[in-house]
Simulated scan of single mutants.
Amino acid sequence: MTQPIFLVGPMGAGKSTIGKLLAAQLGLPFADSDKVLEDRTGADIPWIFDVEGEAGFRRREHEVLHDLCTGIPQVIATGGGIVLLPENRQLLIGNGMVVYLRASLDQLVERTSKNSNRPLLQVADPRAKLQEILQQREAFYLEVSDMVCDTDDCTPRQAANLVAERLQQGPLSS
């Protein structure tokens, strides 16, 4: 790989977990855009949402993505909503290989149910919110992706192996 590999998808799709495994397998550095954002600001994402709102968070997220688009080969796990801004979609499309890690609503609900560090899911009905998020973002994930990998029926290691194999073959969908 001579360019960054961006992992996109909704929260709970496995971007960070699969990303770390994929980076190790490919011998590349790993970056998590949410972690980079937290390290830069000295604040966690729920705090940023509370103080600056979603718009403030998205602005900061864009700055981090812009800086990660350096052309350095690395695996980058992005935040689930990174595709919401058109300028982010253009950065993703123009600066590397984009892999959409897709998961069913049931899997996303299960995987996110025990994590309170997800501000958008601090609502009465997290399942309905996840469904709304998927409906809002699915077309954007597909728009930017060079490859789609369904993660429902595989372990994170199996998903990382699948993505690595497909990267060597070139862009595909599953």
Rank of each mutant, 00 (worst) to 15 (best):
residue 54 E to Y: 02
residue 69 C to A: 03
residue 76 I to D: 03
residue 31 A to H: 13
residue 49 F to W: 12
residue 48 I to W: 05
residue 53 G to N: 10
residue 61 E to W: 06
residue 58 R to Y: 04
residue 76 I to Q: 01
residue 69 C to N: 00
residue 53 G to I: 04
residue 31 A to P: 13
residue 70 T to R: 13
residue 63 E to K: 02
residue 28 L to H: 02
residue 66 H to Q: 15
residue 75 V to F: 06
residue 25 Q to A: 11
residue 81 G to N: 15
residue 25 Q to G: 09
residue 36 V to S: 02
residue 27 G to N: 07
residue 65 L to C: 01
residue 83 V to I: 05
residue 65 L to Q: 00
residue 82 I to M: 14
residue 62 H to Q: 13
residue 85 L to C: 05
residue 58 R to G: 06
residue 32 D to F: 01
residue 55 A to F: 12
residue 70 T to Q: 10
residue 87 E to D: 14
residue 87 E to P: 03
residue 35 K to E: 15
residue 69 C to K: 00
residue 52 E to S: 10
residue 22 L to P: 05
residue 55 A to G: 07
residue 74 Q to K: 12
residue 62 H to G: 08
residue 67 D to W: 02
residue 35 K to Q: 15
residue 56 G to H: 01
residue 51 V to Q: 14
residue 79 G to I: 10
residue 28 L to S: 07
residue 40 R to P: 13
residue 24 A to C: 14
residue 56 G to N: 03
residue 27 G to W: 03
residue 61 E to T: 13
residue 23 A to G: 11
residue 71 G to F: 02
residue 79 G to L: 14
residue 29 P to F: 04
residue 22 L to R: 03
residue 50 D to W: 08
residue 75 V to I: 04
residue 65 L to S: 00
residue 61 E to H: 05
residue 82 I to Q: 03
residue 25 Q to I: 11
residue 61 E to Q: 12
residue 30 F to N: 07
residue 63 E to I: 00
residue 49 F to S: 05
residue 88 N to T: 06
residue 24 A to G: 15
residue 86 P to V: 01
residue 29 P to H: 01
residue 86 P to T: 02
residue 49 F to K: 12
residue 69 C to V: 00
residue 59 R to N: 08
residue 74 Q to Y: 09
residue 22 L to F: 01
residue 74 Q to F: 04
residue 66 H to C: 12
residue 43 A to F: 11
residue 34 D to N: 09
residue 57 F to I: 00
residue 26 L to E: 01
residue 55 A to Y: 11
residue 71 G to P: 01
residue 37 L to Q: 05
residue 70 T to M: 10
residue 77 A to E: 13
residue 47 W to A: 14
residue 35 K to M: 15
residue 45 I to H: 06
residue 25 Q to K: 15
residue 72 I to Q: 11
residue 26 L to F: 04
residue 49 F to C: 08
residue 36 V to H: 03
residue 38 E to G: 03
residue 24 A to W: 10
residue 61 E to A: 08
residue 77 A to W: 09
residue 82 I to Y: 06
residue 76 I to T: 05
residue 46 P to E: 06
residue 42 G to E: 01
residue 28 L to Y: 02
residue 78 T to A: 09
residue 33 S to F: 02
residue 28 L to Q: 07
residue 65 L to Y: 00
residue 27 G to A: 15
residue 75 V to P: 10
residue 89 R to D: 06
residue 23 A to S: 15
residue 34 D to C: 07
residue 31 A to G: 12
residue 79 G to W: 14
residue 74 Q to L: 09
residue 50 D to P: 04
residue 59 R to E: 13
residue 47 W to P: 15
residue 66 H to S: 02
residue 76 I to S: 04
residue 38 E to D: 10
residue 36 V to R: 04
residue 67 D to S: 13
residue 35 K to A: 15
residue 82 I to V: 15
residue 73 P to C: 05
residue 80 G to S: 06
residue 61 E to D: 12
residue 67 D to K: 06
residue 68 L to P: 01
residue 82 I to C: 11
residue 54 E to D: 10
residue 84 L to E: 09
residue 66 H to T: 08
residue 26 L to G: 07
